[in-house]
């Protein structure tokens, strides 16, 4: 995996006087499934919209699959599904496939039809008459049929009920297994992404908080738990990410000589929460 799927340098986008995203520098290898997390307004959609050419960066650089994003460049190798799984509501599913074929140079009718058949979605039904879950599946089938090298999904399950959520996540797992393309999906719920993703990007208030391989991040970080009275002394010898009551999140733990303190592994959700609650500090990135 030498190819870089997503590379940004000091990427920023301003809306009027407010920055939606600023100073974002990322490098993500191809073939990853990237979870983009952060609260609402963190800059997730802004970053994704810039990737697919729906927003122009105010500053900085953005390269996908080794090419600068722009008209007639890399975008025919990128597929995108927005939060509402927008498709033409008056089209039948079959017509949506035909539209996909007409609008894209790379198109596999077989991929789309196989996926829809496997999920029992009738091709003669109008898109507007489908359930939310079915529409999400059609949007995914149409996106995958363009045989993308990079698939970008903005909050793909946020609008779905629990069952449809589960089905959509399963469909994404199978897409990951079948295609090997780089997938980026955003969510504000970490647990949704945990099973699917192997790379994590945390955004907050338009700033990049954390980016790295999930296993490496979990290996590097430890939670130190002990009495508050000695917390300052223990913290002094550590690279502390976040200081909570009775616990310290540290990166690259060093030996502790205080027996009242114990070292615990950290789970992904805690890790993200701690990074989101810390005051802003410059980006920390693991070199993959």
């Amino acid at each position: 995996m030498t190819e870089v799927a997503i590379a940004t340098r000091e990427l920023g986008r301003r809306y009027g006087r407010k920055w939606g995203l600023r100073g974002c520098s990322l490098s993500i290898p191809a073939g990853r499934v990237v979870g983009l997390v952060g609260p609402n307004g963190a800059g997730k959609s802004t970053l994704m919209n810039m990737m697919v050419g729906l927003l122009r960066p105010t500053e900085g650089e953005l390269e996908l699959l080794g090419e600068r994003v722009g008209p007639n460049t890399v975008l025919d190798r990128v597929a995108y599904i927005d939060q509402e799984h927008s498709l033409y509501r008056t089209f039948k599913v079959r017509e949506m496939l035909k539209a996909g074929r007409k609008l894209n140079t790379r198109w596999s009718q077989r991929i789309a039809e196989d996926r829809l058949r496997a999920r029992g979605i009738p091709l003669d039904r109008k898109v507007g008459e489908l359930s939310g879950g079915q529409r999400a599946q059609v949007a995914l089938a149409v996106a995958l049929a363009t045989t993308p090298d990079l698939l970008i999904l903005d909050e793909p399950v946020a609008s779905l009920d629990p069952l449809a959520r589960k089905e959509m996540m399963a469909a994404l797992m199978s897409a990951k297994a079948e295609t090997g393309c780089t997938i980026v999906l955003s969510s504000h719920v970490v647990s949704e992404l945990e099973r699917l993703c192997d790379h994590l990007v945390v955004l907050d208030h338009g700033r990049l908080r954390l980016s790295g391989d999930i296993n490496e991040l979990l290996n590097e970080h430890r939670l130190l738990v002990g009495p508050a009275a000695t917390a300052a002394a223990v913290a002094a010898g550590q690279d502390v990410v976040h200081h909570d009551e009775g616990s310290l999140l540290v990166r690259g733990v060093r030996p502790i000589h205080d027996p009242q303190w114990r070292v615990e592994p950290v789970d992904l959700e805690t890790l993200v929460m701690q990074y989101l609650s810390m005051a802003y500090r410059p980006v920390r990135e693991t070199v993959s």
């Binding site: 697919v52 050419g53 729906l54 975008l75 025919d76 990128v78 597929a79 995108y80 927005d82 509402e84 927008s86 498709l87 033409y88 509501r89 996909g100 609008l103 894209n104 140079t105 790379r106 363009t146």
Partner: peptide
């Protein structure tokens, strides 16, 4: 919102 589909095709 269908421009999000239309404008992100080939």
């Amino acid at each position: 919102g269908t421009h999000r589909y239309s404008w992100t095709q080939g």
